[in-house]
Design a protein around this nucleic acid. Structure first.
Lengths: 258, 258
DNA sequence: ACAAAAGTGTTGTCTTTACACCCATGG
DNA sequence: CCATGGGTGTAAAGACAACACTTTTGT
């Protein structure tokens, strides 16, 4: 949705195509330079940053809508994507929004009772993506994007700080029970990369040897013959994660402490 | 909502009071006679059983709506209640509903484009209640209720079997990490009761001595001076659960295996 | 040769599991 | 006094935590 005509049509008739009162607002996690980051968009006119978001089409399955919204924004399909909470309690989620503000921000004519401004609940999804594969698309409503370290999130628009905080808590809890960290790395990775990733996510130091032992003993990773050159240092081996064991572990739940 | 006038008003103007497109459908777990049971309602006209449900008021916080719906149905406030999933994928959740059927079932005049029949997403909550304290209220749409063993759930209306299955999976997983079983028992309980409860929920045998040791070592229960008379057998001691430790454990997450 | 990062085993401690007999109660 | 269920401890096995030196690489 980029041209002003498309947007005007969306504003006027979007309620025929989309379900009002509900949005999907994904928290997209990526990992880069030893930082866990989330994708933020700069909303035009609002002069502030927030999460991506989108509506559900009238006849579209919910999870398909979530995937579509992520696909449109990151170019990626088939990624790790999971519902984590419905937000409908904060003051922002109780109000109608202001049509007046919208007119000012985007210069588009709109009635006060337009569907866009009714109260919406937000279905929070979080996604784990391979940072290096993402190419972000902006649209009419968003003029810029950035990947922001989760330890350094500014005040966001709407109730999005709450969503980010909850997504992060969920991720940290879940990573103790399911080996989902893999989704943040490329297909081939080194043990030290994985190790640092987990330390970054959990925000604490993990014993190098015990960490490796655990992953190997769980059968989650397979050592490859290849090594990676990393400058004037010993070359680490590359690993792949083991899809079958992973699927099993996802279902069963693991108890690990790393 | 009991009289036909109230219902007619709800059908006609409910969309002014309630958010369309979203319902809350709670799975209410109780424990009785060594069975884990859920509360099912018989929907009038539909000739089948389903979960309770309700709409969210336009300006009502989401979690408050969930509590209100449970309060209306069970008479209980302040119970353990937790979001677990939003359902919006199954064929039933993609369709509009049939106004024709509604007219036949309830004998109430309604237009085909009435708000009630648009596609709705269902926000699944599950509740853990003290069975002995519940008094169920039926209304115009529901003519009967029953507590049904979770191992013996019939085919339910709509997509409610899916919701029950997911609620049960969530409960079983969660009970490994948070000591939520307490919510299903009265304030004072015996160790054997707790033990059987956990065996029932998890569907497997748990070592009697190890189970007790674990609960005590976690500091979750406190032995009382009282005992309970249980017929021609040794009288078991009563226990209380320890609210502070419990709250802490809820937040932190526990790893226990029982 | 040096600096920087990777790789690799062992031991003590704690947690978990497996297991059986005596005790209390009411009829 | 008998039938039924409640209460209680110990030992072996397994999991976890703590810990440091050698190897590899590029410059």
């Amino acid at each position: 949705m980029n041209s002003e005509e498309e947007v005007a049509e969306f504003v006027k008739n979007g309620h025929r195509q989309y379900l009002p009162h509900v949005t999907i607002d994904p928290v997209i996690f990526g990992y880069h330079n030893q930082q866990l980051r989330i994708l933020l968009l700069k909303w035009k006119g609002q002069n502030g940053w927030g999460l991506p978001g989108g509506f559900i089409q009238r006849r579209e399955p919910l999870s398909q809508a979530a995937h579509r919204i992520l696909q449109e924004r990151t170019g990626l399909g088939n990624l790790f994507l999971q519902q984590f909470h419905v937000f409908g309690d904060s003051p922002y989620r109780l109000q109608e929004r202001s049509a007046h503000e919208f007119r000012e921000n985007y210069g588009i004519a709109v009635d006060d009772d337009n569907w866009l401004f009714e109260r919406t609940l937000s279905i929070g999804y979080f996604a784990l993506v391979d940072y290096s594969k993402v190419s972000v698309t902006t649209d009419f409503f968003t003029e810029d994007y950035q990947w922001q370290d989760v330890n350094d999130i500014p005040t966001l628009l709407f109730d999005h700080n709450e969503a980010v905080a909850k997504a992060l808590t969920t991720l940290r809890l879940q990573i103790y029970h399911q080996p989902i960290g893999f989704n943040l790395l490329p297909e081939k990775f080194t043990l030290p990369e994985m190790h640092t990733l987990y330390e970054t996510i959990l925000g604490k130091v993990l014993d190098q040897r015990n960490f490796a032992k655990k992953l190997v003993s769980l059968g989650l990773i397979t050592k490859l013959a290849e090594q990676r050159a990393i400058g004037p240092h010993r070359s680490p081996y590359l690993y792949q994660f083991n899809k079958e064991t992973y699927e099993e572990a996802l279902k069963q739940g693991i108890v690990h402490t790393y």
